[in-house]
Design a protein around this nucleic acid. Structure first.
Lengths: 223, 223
DNA sequence: ACCTGAACACCGTTCAAGT
DNA sequence: ACCTGAACACCGTTCAAGT
């Protein structure tokens, strides 16, 4: 996982799809989605902006390739050992953590829902649900629900990162929103007021896992 | 001479935030997110592109205002009559159907997660979960899970619409993907192969509701 | 084959100038 | 106060010309 190379780009290296994707990911991670332009990318690769088009069709394909480079390795189908529920939790957490590190992936996952990575994800989750005894008839709905939920959280994380890039003090931001929630009308906003405290000091990762467990719970009590 | 009355009678109404948002929504619905430019909007409103900036800060605010115009009315907190589970289903379906009609809303909901509409949604869902007997401590996690799931489906629908705009024959597209699923390796893709048939003739709306029910099921079996 | 970089068509946004 | 529309800085993409 930790293949941190020397940053000294040798200008003698030929351009390649992999080098382009690698550089693009560095830009995305460092400065966000808006910073990835063909000009910035070309300059980082010490080449002309047109050169990139020899290896990549357009910006959409470039972003998709970047997302695949992050997500597909996570989806490798491991031997089906271990408790299936735990396996699903680990798959979900793997995606959650990856998107935590690379928030731009979150917005990207929606674009090409039937790409290779998605197939892998359906298989990884589906196989484990089968092992849990989920009937064939309900399988697709259950897997879809889990995947949709994971993507929903991913998308929110990505949006969060886009709006509060890096430095923002998250806990004081949550505190501010929680304060607004607490001040809302006592009659019309009963539930929101009750949730304010939990909003203030919740942990995103734990909350994500709680949602996965709710779904697994619901799946276990099917029919 | 006072000519204000006269002006209000004229056919060309003054520009206003509402008229701008209304026209923007028409463009978004008709031709998608990429078609909404300040130039196109100005031309539809028979005005200069700079004029819009008098009423709207920038494009981000414009898109957010458009999304709010669709979503906020759905979130009106109705009297808490009726069965709570059914109420949550109706709220969720309302959002699903709205995003089905206006797919661009799906991608927009992620951007400003703590906007007014979101507060309303948390209250509408939260109040009903309280009525179901969900303990205060678990409330925020449960509401978050439901909202994340709804947003996840919304985002996927929006992406779908962006990729297959309007005319595409959905059922033959699903059939094509299902065929690929069926042809995948029999050993490595057991689950995917079992899901192929269901993928081919599933209904998005029913599947969405199935996911909501899984979550409600899981919530009901909390302890 | 691969790369260069100017050129093109388009964007969001600004702002002096008008009413 | 509100609107005009040219101008600016930037984009993705193309393509004749180079190696």
């Amino acid at each position: 996982m930790d293949n941190r190379k020397q940053r000294s780009e040798r200008r003698t290296d030929a351009l390649s799809r992999e080098r382009i994707v690698e550089a693009a990911i560095e830009i995305l991670d460092a400065d966000g989605e808006a910073a990835l332009t063909f000009r910035a990318l070309a300059s980082r690769l010490s080449t002309g902006s047109g050169a990139i088009y020899w290896h990549v069709a357009d910006k959409g394909e470039l972003l998709a390739a970047c997302a695949d480079a992050i997500v597909v390795p996570l989806m490798r189908i491991e031997v089906m050992a271990g408790e299936p529920r735990e396996g699903i939790r680990l798959i979900a957490l793997g995606i959650f953590d990856a998107i935590d590190r690379h928030p731009w992936v979150g917005s990207q996952l929606f674009r090409e829902p039937w790409r290779f990575g998605m197939l892998q994800m359906f298989e990884s989750v589906g196989a484990r649900l089968l092992k849990l005894g989920v009937p064939d008839k309900a399988l697709f709905d259950c897997v879809s629900a889990l995947v949709s939920y994971i993507l929903g959280v991913a998308g929110q994380n990505a949006a969060n990162a886009r709006m509060h890039p890096e430095g923002t003090d998250r806990s004081s931001l949550l505190a501010a929103v929680a304060a607004r929630w607490e001040e809302s009308d006592a009659e019309d906003y009963v539930a929101v007021r009750k949730m304010a405290t939990q909003l203030r000091d919740h942990d995103d990762r734990a909350q994500f896992l709680a949602g996965i467990d709710l779904l697994l719970n619901g799946i276990a009590h099917l029919r």
